[in-house]
Structure formats: structure tokens, C-alpha cells
């Protein structure tokens, strides 16, 4: 009896995450969807005028969507090359003592609060950008540079896992046919770890797209469509973060509607990442999977035995 009760309680706690995901989805959509339907999806997404409290209020989030896209792509341009390089370095090149330094460094980078990153962007990087390239300093470039560093830990950890999961035989085989270590890495290991690396990029995009406080501090929060990387802008997240505290009525609904758009984008990215890591199987192919074939190959009868039998 006690055993069964405990089993049931454990089962219930395992259900909590999927249940809370459902509840979160429900409440965000319930609070945001009515406004989207009233304004019209097309108008909501394509109108770049956001005047939530005017006499004829306008709710268009096009400027914020573009701001989010610019900043996210910028962050990817910084974070992916750097992250992939660090992942390759830790998986293949780093002497053990250095790998033992890099791991906690990345862990700490992941642990530093986003407000600290935003503050660094605001006080150190923005003046540098202003002095070097002109413009307001609080700009897409500034935000992208800092966000690129913020997403580094997730990109490195997933890519590194993928690189380490490449079977030894691939590496040995490439080296045995005379490839240099770098050719082995670039032509064999990286392509073999491709799906994990793609997943890490997608998750990095999700991180950058979802970041709020740091972006508020670095992007200048100008309600405009950015024309150049040196312009100030605003994003889906930063607009919610700035206005939720005082918004009411339709205005608050519009912020939840913005949240709906953000949530949908993030869930699409999550799904894609899950497909790429193979954690979520959408369809099962009839052909034996690569891992099955690998197992078959590994358990094959050695040639010497075959001849004798």
C-alpha cells in the first residue's frame, strides 16, 4: 500500500514539468490571443507602429520582431564561431590542465546574472562602440556582442558533447590514412557531430531571442525599425520587460500577445533542436539506424573466424 502510494507520488512529480508547460501555454495564450484576433494577426505582426495608450491605440510589433531578429542573428554570428572553436579546442586540443580550467570558466560564464552582462555592455562596450563607429552606442552591435558571449556556454557544452560522442574509429581512421589532426577535426569530426552542433546553434538562438534584462540595458529601447547595426532598437522581450510593470487593460493584453509570439518562436526552436539531437523522434524510418548498423559492424564475425568455420 505504502509502496503504491509512493510510486503514485513519484509519478505525479514526473508529470509536473509537462503539466506546468501546459498551464504556462494556456495562461499566456488566454491572456494574449484575444487581442491578436481583435487586431488581426497580419496587422499585429506587420504593423510597426506601437502606440498602446494613444487615443486610437496601435498594436504592431513588426519593429520589435525585426529588432529581435537582428540581435539574435548578430549574437549567433559572434557566439557560434567562438563557441564552436572553444568546443573543438576542449574536446580535441586542450591539455588536461587547460580543459580543467575551461570547464569551470564556462560554467561561471553561464552563472553570471544577465543584469551583470547588460551592465558590462552598457558601461564598457557601448562607449567603445560609440567612439569607434559613431551612433548612440546602445545599439544592435553592442547587444549582439554581449549576447554572443552569453550564449557561448550553451553552444560549447552541446557541441563539445557531440564532438566527444564521435566514435574513436572515425578519428583513428582519418589519421591512419594520413590526414593531419586539423583535417581530421574539420573534415571528419565536425561533419560527424553536425546534428549536435546544429542543435547547439538553435538552442543558442533560443537563448538570445529570449534574453530580456541584458537587452533592455544595452539596446537603447528605441521603438524603431533598425536600419543599421549601429542603430538603437527594441525587441519582443525588452518591450515586455519595460512595459509590463505599468501596463493595464488592452496594453497589458498586447504585451501578453507579444509573449504569445515569442513563446511560439521559442517552442519552434526547441522542437527543431530536439529533432536534431535525436531526443524527439518524429518519424521512425524503416531502414536500420546508423547506430544499429554501427553495432552490427562492431559485433561482426572476425574474418579469421569466418575462414575456420
Amino acid at each position: 500500500m505504502k509502496e503504491r502510494l509512493i510510486g503514485f507520488l513519484l509519478f505525479m512529480s514526473a508529470l509536473v514539468s509537462i503539466a506546468s508547460l501546459a498551464v504556462i501555454t494556456f495562461f499566456i495564450f488566454e491572456a494574449g490571443l484575444p487581442l491578436i484576433f481583435r487586431v488581426g494577426i497580419g496587422n499585429f505582426l506587420q504593423n510597426s507602429i506601437w502606440q498602446p495608450s494613444g487615443k486610437t491605440p496601435q498594436f504592431g510589433i513588426a519593429a520589435m520582431i525585426l529588432g529581435s531578429v537582428w540581435v539574435t542573428l548578430g549574437a549567433i554570428m559572434i557566439g557560434v564561431p567562438l563557441g564552436l572553436a572553444v568546443a573543438i579546442f576542449s574536446a580535441e586540443l586542450a591539455p588536461p590542465w587547460l580543459a580543467a580550467v575551461i570547464r569551470p570558466v564556462l560554467q561561471l560564464l553561464a552563472g553570471i546574472p544577465s543584469v551583470i552582462y547588460g551592465f558590462i555592455g552598457l558601461t564598457i562596450l557601448a562607449p567603445v562602440v560609440r567612439a569607434a563607429f559613431g551612433g548612440p552606442g546602445l545599439s544592435v552591435v553592442t547587444a549582439a556582442l554581449i549576447l554572443g558571449i552569453m550564449i557561448l556556454p550553451s553552444i560549447v557544452s552541446i557541441s563539445e558533447d557531440a564532438l566527444r560522442a564521435v566514435p574513436r574509429a572515425y578519428r583513428d581512421g582519418a589519421l591512419a590514412v594520413g590526414a593531419t589532426q586539423w583535417q581530421t577535426i574539420w573534415r571528419v569530426l565536425v561533419p560527424a557531430a553536425r546534428s549536435g552542433i546544429v542543435a547547439s546553434i538553435i538552442l543558442g538562438m533560443g537563448r538570445a531571442l529570449g534574453e530580456t534584462m541584458a537587452v533592455i540595458m544595452m539596446l537603447g529601447n528605441a521603438l524603431q525599425v533598425p536600419r543599421s547595426p549601429l542603430d538603437s532598437a527594441t525587441t519582443l522581450t525588452s518591450n515586455i520587460g519595460l512595459e509590463l510593470a505599468y501596463a493595464s487593460g488592452q496594453h497589458r493584453e498586447a504585451l501578453f500577445a507579444t509573449g504569445v509570439v515569442l513563446f511560439v518562436l521559442i517552442m519552434i526552436l526547441n522542437l527543431l533542436a530536439n529533432v536534431f539531437t535525436g531526443r524527439l523522434v518524429l518519424w521512425r524510418s524503416r531502414a536500420p539506424s546508423l547506430s544499429t548498423m554501427r553495432t552490427l559492424w562492431r559485433n561482426r564475425v572476425p574474418a579469421s573466424d569466418r575462414r575456420s568455420s
Partner: peptide
């Protein structure tokens, strides 16, 4: 268990501002 894991993975990817919106409304 696939569904449970999917829930956990997805929850990990939900940005904090969405948690803020949800906590605020709920």
C-alpha cells in the same frame, strides 16, 4: 516518458520573461 522528457526539455528552453508573464498572470 518521452512526453515527460519533452516537457522537461521544453521547460528548460522557456525564456525567463515568459515565466515572468506567467507568474504575473497566474
Amino acid at each position: 516518458t518521452t512526453i515527460m522528457r519533452f516537457g522537461t526539455d521544453s521547460l528548460a528552453g522557456v525564456p525567463s520573461i515568459i515565466f515572468g508573464l506567467f507568474g504575473f498572470i497566474f
